[in-house]
Design a protein around this nucleic acid. Sequence first.
DNA 1: ACACAATCAACAAGCTTTGTTGACTACCTC
DNA 2: GAGGTAGTCAACAAAGCTTGTTGATTGTGT
Lengths: 141, 141
Amino acid sequence: MRTPDDLTALFRANQLKVTPQRLAVFEALHGDDTHPTAEVVHARVRERMPTVSLRTVYQALNDLVDLGEVRAVSVDNGAVRFDPNNSGHDHFVCRDCGRVSDVTASRPRLVAATGGEVLDEGYTVDTSEIIFRGRCAACNA
Amino acid sequence: MRTPDDLTALFRANQLKVTPQRLAVFEALHGDDTHPTAEVVHARVRERMPTVSLRTVYQALNDLVDLGEVRAVSVDNGAVRFDPNNSGHDHFVCRDCGRVSDVTASRPRLVAATGGEVLDEGYTVDTSEIIFRGRCAACNA
DNA sequence: ACACAATCAACAAGCTTTGTTGACTACCTC
DNA sequence: GAGGTAGTCAACAAAGCTTGTTGATTGTGT
């Protein structure tokens, strides 16, 4: 994710206004690699702006997702997690502590539809996301 | 997924009773490759057993997931989809029609944590699931 | 400064999923 | 086969996450 200053410019370039609340969301996410939920971001923002509503945080996060600056990750069927790291990477979810870590993996190749049809014909693959599940080093120790 | 008869035996072997409602869920899922939501399964079961509740369908589906006979797939953050195909495969989600298809892909290798730490040390990877996104042949045509 | 468009906070509702309840039913043992 | 027990049944309600709506307010470009 870019710096809050860059995001400010990006928002303005996209006709989105940069309010103090949005700026606080930018700052709360910057450099974060813990894949927080909207609720966690909300709590973090509230430490410095106690009146911000969860709704406003969702709006800012969704705008960031729409602009491609933040990835929305559905790891279980609970709350969506927001990932400000938009470089190509995948995720590892620990079965014990539930923590989501950024990982690098080899790109998988799509071979064929399970029915047997060849996929070259007409299919377009835009993205692939991988979720590894297992136990992290801390929980294995 | 096994046949309804096999599932009946499996449920009994696990001290789970096989009620007519559960059997109807088995039959509704058997051979299905459309990754239905619980609601869709419910509607299908209701065609022949109009009194079955959505709650009961969820119970049967969750039991199947717990026994490893059905996979729960979170493709977006909407309803969970249930996949009776428990052989190793991945999923392709069409951006246009939303359909989820079974696909075969090369297994990705987990290389490293993005921080740089080597993952061999202490990490245990149990499973990896891949979601490809793009446009299917039908929607490209 | 002004006008306009957009966001704000608060409330409430939507959607998916699970907890709870008393009645009922399948299964195991005899 | 019959009875006892454990587990399931359907209906209701509620929990958790996310989004719609509202009137008031605010930022932005001119």
